[in-house]
C-alpha cells in the first residue's frame, strides 16, 4: 500500500529537523506539528518545541484540530508568550520555523495574502500571520504545501507576503531545496518522475544529476505517526 502524501510530508519534514534545535509552528500547522513530534520521538529527542500558545517543550497527548489549542501546552516545561518567540527569531536565535504559502515561487518567496490586487482582491487569503518577520529572521524556514500544481507553484506571485531564509519546500510530489536562491528538487516521492514534477510546477526546475527517491516512512515512523495522530488531523488540509 502506498503512503498517504500527508505521511510522506510529515515524515520528510521530521527528517529535516536536527536534534537540539529550536523549532516553531504557528496557526493551521497540523503537518508541522506531527513532524515535530515524530522527530522528537525518533532521531531528535532534544528538539525544543515552541508553539503559538507560548508553550515550551510541550508533551501533548492528544492532537487538536486547531494548532493554537490549549491541548498543545500539555506537559510544557514553561509558558511564555508568542511575542517572546518572535523576539527570539528577531535576534536570530530561532533555528527553524514551519510556514506555508498559497503560492510559492522559484525563489521560495510565498504569498498568503491575496489573489488579485491587494486593495480589492479576487480572493482574500488569511494573511501571512507571522511569516514576513519569521521567514526573514529565523535561521531557516521549512515550507510545506499540500498541493503541488501550477496554481500553487507559480512563475510570479500575486503578492509577496514573505521571503527570506527558506531552505526546504516539502510537497505531495517532492522535497525541494533552495540552492543559490532557487528551488530545485532534492528527492522525488515514490512513483513521481521529474517530468511529472516539472509539469505540475509553474516555473522551470533545474534537473540535478542525481535525483533520488524520497525514502518512504519506515515501519517505525508509520507506527509513531499513527500513535501521535490517531484521529488523522494530518489529513485535514487534504479535505
Amino acid at each position: 500500500m502506498s503512503d498517504h502524501p500527508a505521511d510522506l510530508i510529515a515524515c520528510s519534514m521530521a527528517r529535516l529537523l536536527a536534534d537540539g534545535e529550536t523549532v516553531f509552528h504557528g496557526v493551521a500547522s497540523n503537518l508541522p506539528l506531527v513532524a515535530i513530534l515524530l522527530a522528537r520521538a525518533t532521531h531528535a529527542p532534544g528538539l525544543v518545541y515552541l508553539n503559538i500558545g507560548g508553550a515550551v517543550d510541550a508533551r501533548p497527548t492528544r492532537l487538536p484540530k486547531s494548532t493554537v489549542d490549549p491541548a498543545l501546552a500539555d506537559g510544557a516545561v514553561c509558558r511564555v508568550t508568542l511575542a517572546d518567540f518572535f523576539d527570539l527569531s528577531a535576534r536570530r536565535r530561532l533555528d527553524t520555523v514551519f510556514l506555508s504559502g498559497a503560492q510559492i515561487d522559484l525563489h521560495g518567496n510565498f504569498n498568503l495574502s491575496v489573489i488579485g490586487p491587494f486593495d480589492r482582491p479576487k480572493v482574500r487569503l488569511p494573511g501571512g500571520a507571522g511569516s514576513a518577520l519569521l521567514a526573514s529572521t529565523a535561521r531557516r524556514t521549512i515550507l510545506w504545501r499540500t498541493r503541488h500544481d501550477q496554481r500553487a507553484f507559480v512563475e510570479s506571485l500575486d503578492f509577496v507576503s514573505a521571503c527570506g531564509n527558506v531552505e526546504w519546500v516539502v510537497t505531495p510530489l517532492a522535497v525541494l531545496k533552495r540552492h543559490e536562491g532557487s528551488l530545485r528538487p532534492e528527492s522525488l516521492h515514490p512513483g513521481v518522475t521529474f517530468e511529472a514534477l516539472q509539469e505540475a510546477t509553474g516555473f522551470e526546475l533545474a534537473r540535478p544529476e542525481a535525483l533520488p527517491t524520497t525514502a518512504p516512512p519506515t515501519d517505525e515512523e508509520r507506527k509513531t505517526i499513527e500513535a501521535i495522530d490517531p484521529e488523522g488531523n494530518r489529513y485535514l488540509e487534504f479535505a
Binding site: V27, S66, G128, L236
Partner: peptide, 30 residues
Amino acid sequence: VGFEALFGLAPNYRRAAEEGRLVVEEHACY
C-alpha cells in the same frame, strides 16, 4: 484571519474584503 485547517478560509471576512466593504490592514503578527 482564518478558520485554520478546521474550515479553511474565513467566509464572511473574505467576502467583505473581496466586495470592498472591509479594508484589510494586513500585518505580520509581529
